[in-house]
């Protein structure tokens, strides 16, 4: 289970933000509700710049459109209006420059752990030996050593998610998109995963965008926390978390930032609840 890297940077400073990597300008997303045919505005006039090798956590009330935004970055969701670009080129579809990790792991049960992780490299026609060497590096860093030949069905949830993370990193995308990566794990497993993987994110040298429900996850893991409003999504909070790593959930600075983000978020959730109650004839 231990993901001991070769060296463990103590109190590593937060890297200075690099060049703009992902630029979203005036993003709008509307879709038609299938039940009543009404037009729903999911995202309205959203601007967000994510810099190279920045770890950004996006948090917001459920159904606020944060996952939709992540799927836009991945190239799977169309944009109704606005521009979304990466390295100055518009995002038009999925590509191997962006890796994605889903809440529900999405492993390939017919492949062993090693073969799951080499798949991306196989797709890029990397020779087998080279692909395996690359996979083994990430197997070591994610704490999967000894499980190379196991089938996913034999693994616990936490181990499955380690495989999914290693798989997304192994083919060396520039951007890693995490869609509620710890949402399906129990509290205990989640705690260890967040702690064990702290150094992994630093050593990966990737731009990381994580969507999450959990304020503590966001504050412990990310360089920057962005809070989306309830639908239609706008940015209502955007702050850097200048706390040295590794971060401890009990560090007063971490707790302070968690409180700050929680206040913004709960005010938004309250607003959303009141609005829904007003619309719902049963809720007073």
């Amino acid at each position: 289970m231990s993901a001991e890297p070769a060296f463990k940077p103590r109190l590593a400073a937060i890297p200075d933000p690099g060049e703009p990597k992902i630029v979203a300008e005036g993003i709008n997303k509307t879709f038609i509700n299938r039940e009543n045919g009404e037009e729903v505005v999911a995202i309205e006039n959203l601007d967000l710049t994510i810099r190279d090798q920045e770890f950004v956590a996006i948090i917001g009330p459920s159904g606020c459109g944060k996952s939709t935004f992540l799927y836009m970055l991945a190239g799977f969701e169309d944009i109704s209006a606005g521009t979304l670009s990466m390295d100055g080129h518009p995002v038009t579809g999925p590509g191997p420059d962006r890796g994605i990790v889903f809440q529900e792991f999405i492993l390939f049960p017919w492949r062993t752990v090693l073969r799951n992780i080499t798949l991306g490299l196989e797709m890029q026609k990397v020779p087998r030996a080279e692909a395996e060497a690359a996979a083994r590096k990430w197997i070591g860093l994610t704490g999967l050593t000894g499980f190379e030949d196991a089938y996913p069905a034999t693994l616990s949830g936490g181990m499955k998610q380690r495989v999914a993370i290693a798989r997304a990193l192994a083919y060396n995308p520039e951007v890693v998109l995490l869609d509620e990566p710890f949402g399906a794990l129990d509290v205990q497993t989640k705690f260890y995963m967040i702690r064990d993987l702290q150094t992994l994110w630093q050593e990966a040298h990737k731009t990381i965008v994580m969507v999450t429900h959990s304020v503590s996850e966001a504050v412990i893991m990310a360089d920057r926390v962005v809070v989306f409003s309830a639908r239609p999504a706008r940015i209502i909070y955007d702050e850097r978390i200048d706390i040295a790593r590794p971060r401890d959930a009990l560090d007063p600075k971490v707790i302070d930032r968690q409180r700050e983000v929680t206040e913004v978020l709960s005010a938004e959730v309250d607003k959303q609840m009141r609005r829904e109650a007003g619309r719902n004839p049963l809720g007073n």
Binding site: A74, G95, R98, G99, I100, E104, I106, M123, P173
Partner: peptide
């Protein structure tokens, strides 16, 4: 699940 196909498309799979 559609996400299964998304994962491989993200790898640039033909």
């Amino acid at each position: 699940p559609p996400h299964t196909i998304w994962v491989v498309r993200s790898m640039g799979a033909p």
